[in-house]
């Protein structure tokens, strides 16, 4: 039987890089942020994800076909994004494969940006960013970098799986969660998440252009947000509002 999820490498993959994951999720925060970093840092397409679990889709850019779930990179950064909402039924196997693959490439850290849904988002001018880490060492690093730790709560979706699989493999995973809209694309939340990414990695990314294009991005992202909403409800994403019980 063929593998359910396969990563097809197109170019040389850097070793000991930092890996970003930006799959469609709450407010599309991670997807917008990661796509912007790919564009600002001129990362090349180096691999893509092939799987029978994904819908039969090809994305055309400048007339050429691309897989919707692609991996970009340069010498010390790898970034995975998806232009389609990843079906819940495929999510576990895809995230596991991405973590396995990252481990095989000696990735130093998997960093994912995402949204932390808040009901009064309209009233928040500069969203706060909270961080979660897969180990005591990663929490120490996050504190040293001045990040506020998400101490108690649920994380649901791609970031949750990355965190779980990274703990299994003793890989460092960091999740940056910016206060965001649940159902609406939130480029402002992506911008604050990018600032924290820069704080952790030392990479410079100017977010002025992202903020300027905010309305345009919101307009263009309506369709993928609609598709993502459907997957979010299936993965019980609203559980992130729940209070955990741990006595």
């Amino acid at each position: 039987m063929s593998e359910a999820v396969r990563i097809v490498e197109k170019k040389r993959i850097p070793s000991e890089a930092i890996m970003l994951q930006g799959l469609p999720d709450v407010g599309l925060v991670g997807l917008i942020a990661t796509s912007y970093i790919i564009s600002e840092l001129n990362l090349d397409e180096i691999a893509y994800v092939d799987s029978d679990l994904l819908p039969p889709i090809v994305v055309l850019h400048k007339g050429l076909p691309h897989a919707p779930l692609r991996i970009y990179g340069n010498k010390d950064l790898i970034a995975a994004i998806s232009e389609i909402a990843v079906p819940v039924k495929a999510l576990h196997r895809i995230m596991r494969k991405l973590v396995d693959w990252a481990e095989s490439k000696n990735v130093k850290m998997i960093l994912s940006m995402g949204g932390l849904p808040v009901q009064n988002r309209q009233d928040i001018k500069e969203p706060k960013v909270f961080a979660a880490g897969s180990s005591d060492d990663s929490l120490k690093l996050l504190r040293e970098k001045g990040l506020e730790i998400l101490n108690e709560g649920f994380i649901v979706g791609p970031q949750a799986l990355t965190m779980r699989y990274c703990v299994e493999r003793k890989l460092t995973a960091v999740a940056l969660l910016a206060q965001s809209f649940f159902n609406y694309p939130d480029p402002e939340a992506s911008a604050v998440a990018i600032k924290k990414f820069a704080q952790i990695t030392g990479k410079k990314v100017d977010v002025a252009d992202l903020l300027e294009k905010g309305e345009e991005i919101r307009l263009r992202a309506r369709d993928i947000m609609r598709r993502t909403q459907s997957e979010l409800s299936q993965m019980k994403k609203s559980q992130e509002y729940d209070l955990p019980l741990y006595v």
């Binding site: 159902n183 609406y184 345009e216 307009l219 309506r222 947000m225």
Partner: peptide, 23 residues
């Protein structure tokens, strides 16, 4: 016309309908 993203939430006292209307 473009169809905006919409959301509906229900509380004990009211129904809140929101819509994302960029531009």
């Amino acid at each position: 016309c473009l169809e905006p993203l919409c959301d509906i939430s229900i509380t004990a006292d009211e129904v809140v309908v929101t819509a994302d209307l960029p531009y």
